[in-house]
């Protein structure tokens, strides 16, 4: 049986893999590859891509698609004690086609949030699936405790953490208006690319509000195990929180 199985093509590490037939200078190809995630030095078969290159491209594209269409493992958010809510979107299809609905909540949901969560905290943390559920599943268990540790050390009060299904970045404005935390942070899955499907962003705003422009937000992006490590991002976000508290502003008005 085993010999009929083909190795999972997406498990190959491409960082140093050169598939050009008889390269004149293999070492240079390897060095070039180390500088980029682009699919270079792959060779060709006639005028086309080689089968391996083509299949890997399709496989990576599938990872990106799956990241969008899959759901967050609820055990992860449950274990960390997040309150689970949902935007106005009823399913993924609606989430993709109606960004406006992903930014809003029903009155019942807002009431639930208001009744169950702490008001007027210094910092409110939200996690949202956004366009990549694996971003939350794989990074939240490392970044969230780093954030909580750091906020506690600095003496900031924290609100009850909220997980939003079918979330857009601006979801944070509605929660901020309901709970009046000084700083609201949303950890949200980034639109996946062909290099990784697990990249997370942290958007932060001081007195986050639907009445303010997008430029109210400060962002730390590219948080994943091959980008900025989630633990390091957590520690860095604490420094940004400090700067926001001191300047009483965020986004482009905040000089870091």
């Amino acid at each position: 049986m085993d010999q009929d199985l083909v190795r999972d093509i997406s498990s190959l590490d491409l960082t140093e893999r050169v598939t050009i037939n008889q390269p004149a200078d293999l070492q240079s190809c390897v060095n070039l590859k180390k500088t980029t995630a682009a699919r270079i030095c792959v060779g060709k078969a006639g005028t086309r891509l080689k089968t391996e290159t083509y299949l890997r491209f399709r496989a990576d594209h599938a990872v990106a698609m799956d990241a969008v269409w899959s759901e967050v493992d609820e055990k992860v958010v449950d274990q960390l004690g997040f309150l689970k809510v949902q935007s106005l979107c009823k399913n993924k299809d609606e989430y993709i086609t109606r960004p406006d609905l992903g930014r809003r909540f029903s009155n019942e949901t807002l009431k639930l949030i208001s009744e169950n969560c702490r008001h007027d905290a210094d910092v409110q943390i939200i996690a949202g699936d956004g366009l990549s559920s694996p971003a939350i599943t794989s990074n939240l268990p490392d970044i969230y405790p780093m954030l909580m540790d750091g906020l506690k050390e600095k003496g900031y009060t924290t609100g009850d953490p909220i997980f939003v299904k079918f979330a857009r970045v601006a979801t944070m404005d509605r929660i901020s208006e309901a709970l009046h935390a000084k700083i609201t942070i949303i950890l949200i899955g980034e639109r996946p690319g062909l290099a990784t499907g697990e990249s997370l962003s942290a958007y932060m705003a001081y007195e986050s509000s639907t009445k303010k422009p997008e430029s109210q937000r400060t962002v730390v992006s590219n948080i994943h195990k091959n980008g900025m490590p989630p633990v390091e991002a957590g520690a860095q976000i604490i420094s940004i929180v400090d700067a926001m508290m001191e300047a009483k502003t965020s986004g482009i008005d905040l000089k870091l």
Binding site: M146, D149, G150, K152, E153, P229, V231, E232, G234, A235, Q236, I238, S239
Partner: peptide, 11 residues
């Protein structure tokens, strides 16, 4: 991950 490590040592 130096910043994270320093936070961890302190806390």
């Amino acid at each position: 991950f130096a910043k994270a490590l320093s936070q961890m040592i302190r806390i």
